[in-house]
């Protein structure tokens, strides 16, 4: 039986891939308990991994003394997460399209594309160091 109510977790974790991924695993277990289907769990997992890697590797520049702040709300209808790093931020709209002919064979630059493909909302703060993502269980925002 799917869980009811709402889970709200707010954590500041050390900026290592291992530390942040442990939190991701915990959040995925929560998502599964709310009865999100397999495809939704796969998409949430992928988007979280991509966002975390961006925060740790690019945002914090691999500096493990810098933290990653994760704020997550999970309910029966939606998964909502914000991931912030301590870097100077970037302009997501300036990231070259990895699907274009000249970028197709580059070995990086696909993370943001995948986050946008699998989540229903992907938005950045003005500084570009915090990504906010939502996955609606029904695929669209529930009626108020």
């Amino acid at each position: 039986m799917a869980r009811e109510g709402l889970v709200h977790k707010s954590r500041v974790v050390a900026g290592s891939v291992t530390a942040v991924e442990a939190l991701c695993r915990e959040l995925l277990e929560d998502v599964q308990q709310f009865g999100f289907d397999e495809d939704a769990v796969f998409g949430i997992h992928l988007a979280m991994e991509e966002a975390v890697l961006n925060a740790v590797k690019h945002g914090n520049g691999g500096d493990e003394t810098r933290s990653v702040r994760v704020e997550c709300r999970i309910g029966p209808d939606e998964f909502d997460i914000s991931i912030a790093d301590e870097g100077g931020g970037f302009n997501p709209d300036a990231v070259p399209d990895p699907r274009s002919e000249e970028n197709l064979c580059k070995s990086s630059g696909r993370g943001v594309l995948l986050m946008r493909a699998y989540m229903d909302v992907v938005e950045y703060n003005e500084a570009g160091n915090c990504v906010h993502m939502i996955k609606y269980r029904s695929g669209r925002k529930p009626a108020e």
Binding site: L46, L53, G111
Partner: peptide, 15 residues
């Protein structure tokens, strides 16, 4: 399950 970092590895291997 894999992430885009694996796609990057495949590109490097293919080259």
């Amino acid at each position: 399950f894999l992430t885009s970092a694996v796609l990057g590895l495949l590109i490097r291997i293919s080259k």
